[in-house]
Simulated scan of single mutants.
Amino acid sequence: MESFFISTGVVALGEMGDKTQLLAVLLAAKFRKPWPIILGILVATLANHALAGAVGQWVASLLGPELLRWVIGVSFLAMAGWMLIPDKVDDDAADSKVLLGVFGTTVLAFFMAEMGDKTQIATVALAAKYPDFVSVVAGTTFGMMLANVPAVYLGHKVAERIPMKLVHGIAAAIFAVLGLLTLFNVGNLW
């Protein structure tokens, strides 16, 4: 359960103000059909995070525990720094052709926007750290949904009231703590 809760929390906080959350707002404003957008986000996230989780498990199988601990610890610290850099929505992702419909457009836009994104990289690191693939992918997916479903429904109203610098700072601190705990092998996390 630890892997699920940590994965959920890290991704939910990491997603606040992220380009895919901004993409959710843009898609909601453009199409005004929340259910196909939410289902599209779910499908795209499951596919993307399952792929990222598989990569993380594969990396873990290649490296020994000591090297893996250092790679993951440094990765979490790098994620902490990356969290402090605000994202912007790529115009290409937001302007996907409507030929695919609302659902198809959302799946394609979200899957592509998540490629190489902070939450995808975090999923790789979490899957390398925790052996329970299903819990990690379920947790990161749930975290994405926690951050993006309200964005679909509330959009700009929420973004205006929540100081994103604070949210990014909290997420960066969590990644930094995870990185340090991993590097110093606190609590025998391995």
Rank of each mutant, 00 (worst) to 15 (best):
residue 2 E to C: 00
residue 2 E to D: 07
residue 2 E to M: 05
residue 3 S to V: 03
residue 4 F to G: 09
residue 5 F to N: 04
residue 8 T to C: 06
residue 10 V to N: 02
residue 10 V to K: 02
residue 11 V to H: 10
residue 14 G to H: 05
residue 15 E to K: 03
residue 15 E to V: 04
residue 16 M to Q: 08
residue 17 G to F: 09
residue 17 G to K: 09
residue 17 G to Q: 10
residue 19 K to Y: 00
residue 20 T to W: 03
residue 20 T to H: 00
residue 23 L to D: 09
residue 24 A to T: 07
residue 24 A to E: 00
residue 25 V to Y: 00
residue 26 L to S: 11
residue 29 A to P: 02
residue 30 K to N: 06
residue 30 K to M: 08
residue 30 K to T: 08
residue 31 F to C: 02
residue 34 P to N: 09
residue 35 W to R: 07
residue 36 P to D: 03
residue 36 P to N: 05
residue 37 I to N: 08
residue 39 L to D: 00
residue 41 I to L: 15
residue 42 L to I: 11
residue 42 L to T: 11
residue 42 L to F: 15
residue 43 V to D: 04
residue 44 A to L: 08
residue 47 A to N: 02
residue 51 L to C: 08
residue 53 G to C: 05
residue 55 V to G: 01
residue 56 G to C: 05
residue 56 G to L: 00
residue 59 V to Y: 03
residue 60 A to T: 07
residue 61 S to P: 03
residue 63 L to Q: 13
residue 65 P to L: 02
residue 65 P to T: 12
residue 67 L to C: 00
residue 69 R to S: 10
residue 70 W to G: 04
residue 70 W to Y: 15
residue 71 V to P: 06
residue 72 I to Y: 00
residue 74 V to T: 05
residue 75 S to E: 01
residue 75 S to A: 15
residue 79 M to K: 04
residue 82 W to H: 06
residue 82 W to K: 05
residue 87 D to C: 03
residue 89 V to E: 01
residue 89 V to W: 04
residue 93 A to R: 06
residue 95 D to M: 11
residue 95 D to E: 14
residue 95 D to F: 08
residue 97 K to W: 07
residue 98 V to S: 10
residue 98 V to T: 15
residue 99 L to Q: 07
residue 99 L to T: 08
residue 102 V to S: 09
residue 103 F to P: 05
residue 104 G to D: 03
residue 107 V to L: 06
residue 107 V to M: 01
residue 108 L to K: 14
residue 109 A to M: 03
residue 111 F to R: 08
residue 112 M to P: 02
residue 112 M to N: 08
residue 113 A to M: 13
residue 113 A to W: 01
residue 116 G to L: 09
residue 116 G to H: 08
residue 117 D to H: 01
residue 117 D to T: 07
residue 117 D to R: 05
residue 118 K to D: 02
residue 121 I to P: 01
residue 123 T to I: 08
residue 124 V to E: 11
residue 124 V to A: 12
residue 125 A to H: 04
residue 129 K to H: 13
residue 129 K to T: 10
residue 134 V to S: 06
residue 136 V to G: 02
residue 137 V to F: 11
residue 137 V to D: 13
residue 139 G to Y: 13
residue 139 G to I: 10
residue 140 T to D: 12
residue 141 T to Y: 11
residue 142 F to V: 15
residue 144 M to F: 10
residue 144 M to L: 10
residue 146 L to R: 12
residue 149 V to Q: 12
residue 153 Y to R: 08
residue 153 Y to G: 11
residue 154 L to D: 05
residue 155 G to Y: 11
residue 155 G to S: 12
residue 157 K to D: 14
residue 158 V to A: 11
residue 161 R to A: 15
residue 161 R to V: 14
residue 161 R to F: 11
residue 162 I to W: 13
residue 163 P to R: 14
residue 163 P to C: 07
residue 164 M to D: 04
residue 165 K to R: 14
residue 165 K to M: 02
residue 168 H to N: 12
residue 169 G to H: 14
residue 170 I to S: 01
residue 170 I to E: 06
residue 172 A to H: 09
residue 172 A to M: 07
residue 172 A to S: 15
residue 173 A to E: 03
residue 173 A to D: 07
residue 174 I to Y: 09
residue 175 F to K: 14
residue 175 F to V: 10
residue 176 A to G: 14
residue 178 L to R: 11
residue 179 G to P: 11
residue 179 G to Y: 04
residue 182 T to A: 12
residue 183 L to Q: 04
residue 185 N to R: 12
residue 186 V to A: 13
residue 187 G to R: 09
residue 187 G to Q: 06
residue 189 L to W: 12
residue 190 W to N: 03
